[in-house]
Amino acid sequence: MRRARIFHQGRAVWAVLSDDQAELLLNDGVRVPVDGAQWLAPVTPGATVFALGLNYADHTAELGFKAPAEPLVFIKGQNSFVGHNGTSPRPQDGNQMHPECELVAIIGKPGRKISRENALSYVSGYTVACDYAIREYLENYYRPNLRVKNRDATTPLGPWIVDAADVADPQALALSTTVNGKIVQSGSTADMVFDIAGLIVYLSDFMTLKPGDMILTGTPHGVHFVAGGDEVVCEIESIGRLVNYPKLPG
């Protein structure tokens, strides 16, 4: 099953994608055509959304770092999300804004001190993120700092959440980013430094994970700077294809 959050007739609602992927089915039986749907990021308000830095060895080498000994985790604020087909503001001086395609694991039940063998049973589903960074604003304090990673609407998420039961092996999915049709990132979730189970073990060791919490699991190599008006597509095999448009002010 694929679940999406959309804006429909004055309210935010969760909907289920039809098998032919042409319609979104609401609780009350209403069917909304996918074409023209107002997609929202499928994020539960109040959820904790974690993101990972340097979690693919090839991207880590590309940035000139050594693989970290423990996961490099940062947290997203609710201002940062935007749905499928949305726009992401690119500041006029943000010439080094680059997309990062990431597999997102969604937590389905509360857990603390979760064991590795049970870890994936805590995942209810998966979605796609494009975790933009703007490198001009990097500073070496709590890096990656919020001015780089927590700007309004610079973390597209979606289009939908695919049930975990429908994903045979989340650590063997092809992921890619294209900009105006040209491939700029291409990798596999097999190459994560800390895999999803490992990240759940790490985080739940010191804090309680709640239903709706999300883990953006990092990005493979490929740093390509976007321009206003580009079409950026992050796609993950078996999960979905997330489209976003960077937009200059004015």
Binding site: T48, I75, G77, Y141, Y142, N145, L146, N150
Partner: peptide
Amino acid sequence: APVLYIKPH
């Protein structure tokens, strides 16, 4: 810039 952090819920 201000050095920010987030305290989750």
